[in-house]
Amino acid sequence: MAEGGQDLKGKVCLVTGANRGIGRAIAETFAGAGAIVYANARREGCMDEWCAGHSGRLTGEMVPCYFDVTDAGAASEGLGRIRKERGGLDVLVNNAAVPANDRLGMIPLEKARAVFEVNVFAVLHLLQLAGRLMMRKKAGSIINISSGVGLEGNPGQALYAASKGAVIALTKSAAKEWAPHGIRVNSVAPGLTRTEMIDEVKPEHLQERISRIRMGRLAEPSEIAEACRFLASDGARYITGQILCVDGSAVL
C-alpha cells in the first residue's frame, strides 16, 4: 500500500512489464495511491486474475493491458485503447526489460539486438506514443526504469549496462525536448532488487554484490515503486531529466 496517500488519484497510468517483480510492485503502489493503472504484460490473460483480485481492495483501478512492447503495431493499439477509454494518459512507466549477464566475449550479436529491442527500442517507441497523448494536455510524467549499471558499468553486464545507459541518455534528451510541452521524463535506477531477475545472477556473484551495498541488503520492489510514485505525482511537478538511484548506496 502506498505510503503517500492518494497522490495519484484519477491519474491514468500505463506500467509495462507489470506481471512480475518491480513492474508488479509499481502497478500495485500506483493503484493504492488512487491511480487507474493499465497493467501491461505480453501474454494474453496472464494478469486477469491478479487484476480482478485487486478490484475493490485498492482505491484505484487495475486494468489488464496485453501487448508485446516490441510489437510497434500492438503497442500503438494499446495506447489507442487507453486514449479511447480514458481520453488520454498521465503517466507511463517503461519498466519491461530483459536481463543479460554475459562476459564481453560471450555475447552473440543476435542476443545484443534482442536485448536492445526490448530494453531500448521499445522504450523509445512507447515514449513517442505516450508523448503524443500527453502533448495535447501539456502535462504528463514518463518514468523509464534504468539501472545503476547503466551509469557505472559492471563486469559481466556490458550488454545490459549498455542498454540501460541508452535509456538514461534517452531520458535526459527527451526531458530537454519535452519540457516546453509540460511533459516530464525521469528515470529510476534501481540497485540490486529482490525480483525474479536475481535468479539469473550466479549465487557467488550475488553475495559479492550484496557485500558492496552499504545498506547490506537487496532492495525490495516496493521501495523502487515508491520512488516511481513520487516522480509520477504532482509533488514532482518541477523535476525532469533526473536519474534517481534507489540502490542502498551501492558501490559498483
Partner: peptide
C-alpha cells in the same frame, strides 16, 4: 507538426505510425 499529428489522431481516433 507534432501538434498537428496529435490533433488529427484525436479528431479521427487513430494512432499514426512513426
Amino acid at each position: 507538426h507534432m501538434s498537428l499529428v496529435t490533433a488529427l489522431e484525436e479528431e479521427f481516433d487513430i494512432m499514426l505510425d512513426t
